[in-house]
Design a binder for these strands. Sequence first.
DNA 1: CTGAAAGCGCTTACAG
DNA 2: CTGAAAGCGCTTACAG
Lengths: 345, 345
Amino acid sequence: MRKRTKATSIDIAHRAGVSQATVSRVLRGSPLVNAETRRRVEEAVRALNYKVDRHASSLRTQRSGTLALLLFEEPTPDHAHINPFFLSILGSVTRACARHGQDLLVSFQQLSDDWHADYEDSMKADGLILLGYGDYRLYRDKLDALVAQGTRFVRWGAVQPDQPGISIGCDNAHGGRLVGEHLAALGRRRVAFLGSASRGYPEFLDRYRGCEAALQVAGLALDPALQVDADSSEEAGYTAAMALVERGQPFDAVFAASDLIAIGAIRALAEKGLRVPEDVAVVGFDDIPTARFTNPSLTTVVQDTARAGELLVETLLKLVKGEAAESVTLPAQLVVRRSSGAAAG
Amino acid sequence: MRKRTKATSIDIAHRAGVSQATVSRVLRGSPLVNAETRRRVEEAVRALNYKVDRHASSLRTQRSGTLALLLFEEPTPDHAHINPFFLSILGSVTRACARHGQDLLVSFQQLSDDWHADYEDSMKADGLILLGYGDYRLYRDKLDALVAQGTRFVRWGAVQPDQPGISIGCDNAHGGRLVGEHLAALGRRRVAFLGSASRGYPEFLDRYRGCEAALQVAGLALDPALQVDADSSEEAGYTAAMALVERGQPFDAVFAASDLIAIGAIRALAEKGLRVPEDVAVVGFDDIPTARFTNPSLTTVVQDTARAGELLVETLLKLVKGEAAESVTLPAQLVVRRSSGAAAG
DNA sequence: CTGAAAGCGCTTACAG
DNA sequence: CTGAAAGCGCTTACAG
């Protein structure tokens, strides 16, 4: 392999007949530089295919121009099995980073790992984006540690009044309400909930409570006997739905806390001889790409992932610059497809 | 927000009562250092929560300790829609990077973007991992440019004799053969192929040819009239299957070039009143997580993504160190589920 | 508008 | 085994 000889700003300076400092000014876009000087430098930069050395620049400025995204995947040790919903946020985060001229370091972590004291101290990144489901109670202490260290971070997740740091999240309660209203309007009376509706999973809990509130308005209840814990995977959805059927309690609708859970549940219901949506209406949450192609297609709640990624990056960059920033709750929206039995495609 | 004051190696040196050079030796694991000295330094490092500044270190050593993964997503401009198969490689790559003490920069690119001359010159990364489907012919020129520049990179994709650089790929031809044999053994006579089987998509083409070869052994043909182009998405699979049915040519099996295509195809077939697997057997490729939960569950070909990620990283690190490295083809394996109509779960 | 110079925080030959 | 010193390639006050 050919040895690479990188051009430095000194090479550019020689070629353009200016000082190295001037080269640096041009590359940083300083307004001081004479137009003709600028032109000569830019010409030399092109000719030598010069790129500013990121490390030298960062060392000098004490800014890395890099954000780190940590993706937690607590329950499942199976790498293949990352929730596509997070993937779609990851996609929009990479795009937002590109727009803002930031590089993105990505790392998958266990919630239990020692991630809370690394990236920023080693200057690898100016700030952290935290993403992932997992028991919030495990999480909480680490967030407190981040705040105590002064680490700049933004988290995707439920916006709660007492939480450490800043979150960007979806209006899960409203999403749940939409589902409850939809099922009630379709005449479903006994709605089951598949997902861990506890304080450890605030997003799921909010979805649960939102649905419950809507059902109450319709004179219905979300019977705790029809709730089964599940983390966000097809596997867990399948197991939970099997358990639900075996409880023997009648139900005519399933609100799955995520699309993956819904997909597993549909499979389990089919195996138990229950028809979706005739016998059981099924509604998910997230609107992952596959939701349109399940059989039957899945009624679900869309979260605006494009906006989410943009907001995560923008908010974090504000913190990095020392500006004020605040948590944001994004709206949720119902998408009606065939699995809930409404008259829709 | 509290102002962060980072400890430097000088702070550690003071506290441990040694020179800054010795601190550096301890942190780089130099064998020269006295055990007691080492202990004192380590103690100071812990006490001050010191982390080596990555940029200073990289500037000095001219090594960034970072790899960059570029993910191409040519045909679909929809960020939400990254092939889960690549996601699973991404997952195993991040893990492999962690094991090798490398950071990973991730960027989603259009095949047409200007990615071929950036990461390495700016020292952001020591090497590149290239991932993604897309027209290989568009790709080819850029790969040549990378080689000419001396950029170190490894590509996930078909291993071909004349290609620039190094690839890690799956034995697509063998995978295709397994599918052909499976369908022939089940008595299917008219096998359709959904996917772009052209020189621009060497993976798909290899799958096509492998299947064709196996069918020929069984005295059957892969009728070109039953081939419909599709890139790797549910959408494309749906559209392609619709087009196939409308051609009016009889067929009793579909080999979809990827699981996403298969999922879209199953949906289309159902809408056209064709039963899977009774009327049409469907087989995919990739074994994405959802494949076990489609309705019916999907017979497909597994690629070893865990090994793939490990090999991509290991091979790239060899190149970075200036060692010899070579392309590798990984084995493919058939997973029989219900969509092909065999007697399996 | 431009140049000379200091310094960001490390690593590593060199000398002892 | 350890320290003093040079230098990686930039950025930015400072002086002109």
